[in-house]
Simulated assay, not measured.
Amino acid sequence: MDLETWAAFAAASAVLLVIPGPTVLLVVSYALGQGWRSAMPMAIGVALGDFAAMTASMAGVGALLLASAELFTALKWIGAAYLIYLGIKLFRAGGRLEAEPRTAPASARRMLGHAFLVTALNPKSLTFFVAFLPQFIDHGAPLLPQMALFCATFLVLAFANAFGYALAAARARGHVGNPGLIKVVNRTGGSLLVGAGLLALTARPSP
């Protein structure tokens, strides 16, 4: 693999990751509620979720999802239901500056688990890797080293992206003290998560 191919993959991945989606919304909402302590567990959870999706894709699950409408639909409903569940909880937080309507801070394990599930339980992640990675594969070179490099690159970028979003939101947290504004942020974020869940229900396997 030449440097230009790797750079093109890294650039394309960075652009795709920085676009806000369900994972970014969850990371930001937790960071606004829990502060900087959420950055590391959320970033690790996102990276592990992407690792699970990439591993499953390389193992053939992504191809199976493309071929099996029933399996794709089942995973799609599970992922969508979880996004809607998180969105409703955030929406109900009201004017509290929390990622969840709770008085006690969320544990690192809980934050990591939420980030992992939202990232991994997305059928688009599986089909995305199946459709995205082959475009950069050099079929004349050994496959395993290329896949290892691409996966490591994507996971580092995914971790850095989530970590950066979390730190930025945590920094902004200190400037957000108006309960009315917090309520708007929570309800907007919750609505977007619910919307993302509903949008996931419209996903179709790529032909």
Rank of each mutant, 00 (worst) to 15 (best):
R102N: 11
A80D: 02
Y85S: 01
A69E: 14
L97Q: 15
A74F: 09
R92C: 07
G94N: 05
K89N: 13
G94I: 04
L71E: 00
G87Y: 07
A104N: 11
S57R: 10
I88G: 03
T73G: 06
E100N: 13
T55Y: 07
I84N: 07
A59K: 12
I84T: 07
F51M: 13
E100Q: 15
L97W: 08
T103F: 10
G62K: 12
A53C: 07
T55E: 01
A99F: 15
T103C: 06
A67E: 13
T55G: 10
A104F: 03
R102S: 10
G60P: 02
A93Y: 10
I78P: 05
A59H: 07
A53Y: 04
A74N: 00
R92F: 02
G62Q: 10
G94P: 06
S107M: 08
E98P: 00
I78T: 06
A104C: 02
G60S: 05
G94A: 04
S57F: 04
M58G: 13
E100W: 12
L86I: 09
E70T: 13
G79L: 01
G87M: 11
G94K: 09
A106R: 10
D50Q: 14
G79V: 03
K76A: 05
A52P: 05
A108N: 14
R96D: 13
A81G: 08
L83F: 00
A67V: 05
A63K: 14
F51K: 08
S68V: 00
M54L: 13
R96A: 12
Y85R: 05
